[in-house]
């Protein structure tokens, strides 16, 4: 018989603690001053101190812009990887055959 091994982890306790934290956070939030001075720009997104553009499309950071640093830093890893995904049917088959060959050679040598 197999033991139940998730003994140190209880999602219900986690959720209860999470809710308590939310309550504390709300309590701290409610202690703040509700009558702050509204200015012309309050409520606008903060873009490094620049004025926020009027066009809503320009306010949103779109897909490919995120993680560009990560992609750039790992360019040498990503370039061959993306080039490998050619979308060519023959290449899909060749990969299957290569894997087959490697697995069979491995089994032949090791077993």
């Amino acid at each position: 018989m197999i033991d139940i091994v998730l003994e140190n982890w209880s999602p219900i306790v986690f959720i209860v603690v999470l809710l308590l934290n939310v309550l504390v956070a709300y309590w701290l939030y409610s202690m703040g001053n509700p009558e702050y001075k509204k200015t012309k720009y309050s409520g606008d997104p903060f873009i490094s101190g620049n004025r926020s553009p009027k066009d809503v499309k320009k306010l949103h950071v779109a897909g490919d812009n995120l993680f560009w640093g990560f992609k750039k830093a790992l360019k040498r890893y990503y370039d061959p990887l993306i080039d490998g995904h050619t979308g060519r049917l023959n290449d899909y088959m060749i990969w299957v055959v290569i894997t087959l060959a490697v697995v069979l050679i491995y089994l032949y040598l090791v077993v």
Partner: peptide, 16 residues
């Protein structure tokens, strides 16, 4: 990180 990006891109931000 990836699902955060997808969620942010599709759902968050100003209404377009």
């Amino acid at each position: 990180a990836i699902v955060a990006k997808a969620f942010f891109n599709a759902f968050l931000g100003p209404d377009q």
